[in-house]
Nucleic acid binder design. Sequence first.
DNA 1: ATCTTGTAAACCGATTCGGTCAATGAAAGC
DNA 2: GCTTTCATTGACCGAATCGGTTTACAAGAT
Lengths: 202, 202
Amino acid sequence: MDKFLSLPLEKQNTIVDGALTAFGTNGYKKASVSDIAAAAGISKAMVFHYFGTKKALYLYLIKLCGTTMMDEINEKFDRAVTDFFDRIRLAGDIKLAVIQKHPAILLFLSSVLHENDDEVKQDIRMLLADQNVTSFREKIAFEGVNTSKFKEGVDPKLIVKMLTWMSEGYFNDITGYGDTDLEIFYKEFLDCLVLLKKVCYK
Amino acid sequence: MDKFLSLPLEKQNTIVDGALTAFGTNGYKKASVSDIAAAAGISKAMVFHYFGTKKALYLYLIKLCGTTMMDEINEKFDRAVTDFFDRIRLAGDIKLAVIQKHPAILLFLSSVLHENDDEVKQDIRMLLADQNVTSFREKIAFEGVNTSKFKEGVDPKLIVKMLTWMSEGYFNDITGYGDTDLEIFYKEFLDCLVLLKKVCYK
DNA sequence: ATCTTGTAAACCGATTCGGTCAATGAAAGC
DNA sequence: GCTTTCATTGACCGAATCGGTTTACAAGAT
């Protein structure tokens, strides 16, 4: 494990991203170490040299994702922002920054949440109990948010649902794009927020 | 092949849905015939008895999805509907009906579009050339639609993008739910359409 | 009693699995 | 120059799984 951590950071990231992609697209069982090695640009033997076993690598990635997201949240989140749409935008900013660090991270995390293989199922539950990603997302988006600015007849909860779906679809679309396209997509997403704010507020 | 087609329709559907799920979640190569058999509730030998080879089953499913979607479109699509939001709803109705017939169909089709295995890549291209699913979706949603009813300053194209993302996220959510939950989710989706119409039209 | 027919368990050779190891080669210390 | 160290890999291991076949069996139909 320390073998891996003493690698240059750039190489670490290449390997992590390859592993995230391989596990994310195929799940724990069906992602073979050969797949991972190929996606990471190293030989299969090196995977074992760095991480010992396939399972150790998998669990390391889960922990890494947790800290990566936490770091970004701690850096960017600002509870002084109470406007509904500004909060949504904040959440989007955080998500985008995470994706720019590790493009396959959302793919991987979603596959981890659905993972059902006996070899890792229990370990996942314990790791996710330590971290608490899902509950954090709720807090970030909606805790202490001011919803009094909405027009009569506009249900904020419905807007929340809409925006949740939108950002799901939006982040689905950008999975696997380069950095430049990513920013363009994000501008369009922000345009949508502006539009919604215009038509939904008093 | 005729062995399979002479099965009672209910059993055919069970098998098809299992196979769609297995291929859809793992792709052509990584979905083993054992997986498929287990998901379909039959023995591995029966898969070969019915379809001959794994590849033949895969290509049969692609064709089946094509005709299933075409049938639903031909039955429900009405070009006389020109209102923007009514059209979106029409497209949603069609998608929902297809999902109710085969819950894993969208998952499968999306995985087919991304499939990259040499054993089936070329066959997929030829089958998709015959059918033309993607172009149809565009037509259904937007051909001959009246966009003059939007408020000043509301860009219809942006609304389209929003709704595309929304329905992507929405249909992502419902993938793998039972029939009852599905209808509830759909009502919420329709509520969003009503809300958007209210705030975006003159 | 015999002949289908639908079905699954056991089986086939080939491939791939997670994981190991011997050999290579480039750097580093002396 | 010589040795030691260490990162790296292709070849390799037994075990599991692959796509696909064969056999065995139970239930009707004749």
